[in-house]
Simulated scan of single mutants.
Amino acid sequence: MTETTATTQKPENSWLNLIFNILLPVLILNKLTKHIGPFNALILALAFPLIYGIYDLIKRKKVNAFSILGLLNVGLTGGLALIGIHGFWFAVKEAAFPALVGCFVLGSAFTKKPFIESLFLNPNVMRVELLEEKLKEHGKQVEFHEHMRKATMLLSLSFVTSAILNFVLARRIFLDIDMTLSADAQSVILNEQIAQMTTWSMAIIMVPSMIFLLGIFWYLMRGIKQHSGLTTDELLKS
């Protein structure tokens, strides 16, 4: 009983997952490489998902999938830069990461707790206990889980779309670098390409992704109202 209560009081924070495992490491690689060197930037960037993953393992007694994805993403980006590989393979890397996340999200759709539940149904924001009570009252637990599964599959589709957009954009930005240039000069050019990719991806990839997420949220809330009878105002905590 105590263990269940503790889990309810301290749910896993999906946004902290994204910040520590993805956003901070990417910012370090993009912004600090030219100041502290590619190797030091790689080690520092790897430290965030590694430490967060270890912390989560100790606290929750389970492996954090986002930390593993973060380590793979940072390791690939920094590793490719360190060994001097660029151009086409950076485009592959840019597409591979959202594709991997999409696979992880899709896989969760076939588990007892689809990823969409962890992302949106946060007990700190929504009256999850009230939702579960109403679902049980209406006998709609199975239908609701199926709705969560479909919403999670839609979310995985958004990552596949991002992977395709990432690859097309990266192929235009990550051009081959002249190998006759010095290592420092190649590093500067690569950092500029990474920065350019980050800037353009905000407009070309993030905006469609946000629209996609808003659509999924609308679909999610419509299903919640349909199966539980709760309105958005009744579900959200004041």
Score class of each variant (00 low, 15 high):
118 S>D: 14
154 L>K: 08
117 E>A: 10
107 G>Q: 04
119 L>T: 01
131 L>I: 08
105 V>R: 00
111 T>P: 03
112 K>P: 00
128 V>F: 08
93 K>E: 15
153 M>H: 05
123 P>L: 11
128 V>K: 10
135 L>V: 07
131 L>G: 04
97 F>E: 09
112 K>H: 08
130 L>V: 08
133 E>P: 01
121 L>V: 08
89 W>D: 14
98 P>I: 04
110 F>L: 08
96 A>M: 14
122 N>M: 09
113 K>W: 11
142 V>D: 14
104 F>N: 03
98 P>G: 05
100 L>Q: 05
92 V>P: 00
145 H>G: 05
135 L>W: 07
141 Q>I: 10
125 V>G: 03
153 M>D: 11
93 K>W: 15
127 R>F: 10
134 K>E: 15
94 E>A: 12
105 V>A: 04
153 M>A: 11
91 A>Y: 01
101 V>N: 03
145 H>E: 14
155 L>H: 06
151 A>Y: 08
86 H>V: 07
142 V>E: 15
107 G>D: 06
156 S>G: 10
109 A>W: 01
117 E>T: 07
104 F>H: 06
138 H>C: 05
103 C>D: 07
122 N>L: 11
153 M>I: 15
113 K>P: 02
158 S>Y: 04
139 G>M: 12
110 F>E: 09
117 E>V: 10
114 P>W: 13
94 E>T: 03
97 F>Y: 12
115 F>N: 04
97 F>V: 12
128 V>G: 02
148 M>Q: 13
101 V>H: 02
109 A>L: 04
156 S>M: 06
103 C>G: 11
140 K>T: 14
138 H>V: 07
82 L>I: 13
113 K>G: 03
112 K>S: 11
152 T>K: 02
90 F>H: 10
108 S>K: 01
112 K>I: 06
120 F>A: 10
94 E>N: 09
144 F>V: 02
144 F>I: 04
98 P>S: 05
102 G>T: 02
106 L>G: 01
112 K>Y: 07
123 P>C: 08
120 F>Y: 15
135 L>K: 02
119 L>Y: 08
96 A>Q: 05
109 A>I: 01
116 I>W: 12
102 G>E: 06
81 A>T: 06
90 F>K: 01
134 K>P: 01
115 F>Y: 13
138 H>N: 13
145 H>Y: 09
157 L>E: 07
159 F>Q: 04
111 T>G: 07
140 K>F: 09
105 V>L: 07
121 L>Q: 11
122 N>V: 05
132 E>P: 00
109 A>Q: 02
153 M>L: 15
159 F>D: 00
84 G>F: 08
113 K>R: 11
119 L>F: 15
156 S>W: 01
85 I>T: 10
136 K>V: 06
118 S>A: 09
117 E>P: 01
108 S>N: 04
157 L>A: 14
142 V>N: 09
156 S>N: 05
122 N>H: 08
86 H>E: 15
